[in-house]
């Protein structure tokens, strides 16, 4: 067993998850490829959303994949960073909005 939890080589083996459960694995990959097709949103827009979400869910594999995907689509680094900030803003907002719960609880318990 390797000492690291994350190994960049593992990203290339992603499709091997179907080996242990063909049906669910294939359903996932079918769903995944359908999601990223051009639709009401362009594939380019979806790539930027995926990049932002990759950061929010702290997935190094996804960050690797969608940075490269963005480069291939001609997405510029400034656009990528703006997308990451959108993710970061939502993540920090989600933390901070819980401050209201803290305030409510504080006031409820305080004289």
């Amino acid at each position: 067993m390797k000492k690291e939890y994350y190994n960049p080589e593992d990203l290339k083996k992603f499709s091997s998850i179907t080996e242990w459960n063909k049906e669910l694995g294939e359903k996932f990959f079918d769903y995944y490829s359908s999601v990223f097709k051009e639709g009401h949103l362009t594939a380019r827009e979806k790539s930027l959303i995926a990049l932002a979400v990759s950061h929010v869910v702290h997935c190094p594999y996804c960050i690797d994949a969608y940075t490269k995907d963005g480069l291939q689509r001609g997405i510029e680094k400034e656009e990528m960073m703006e997308a990451v900030h959108v993710g970061a803003a939502i993540k920090s907002g989600a933390v901070l909005v819980h401050g209201v719960q803290m305030m409510n609880r504080h006031d409820q318990l305080s004289m």
Partner: peptide, 17 residues
Amino acid sequence: NPSGAFLPGDQMAMEND
């Protein structure tokens, strides 16, 4: 042609851009 170690994206989408 890509300016780095990555493959080109879809030709038609790039042409539109």
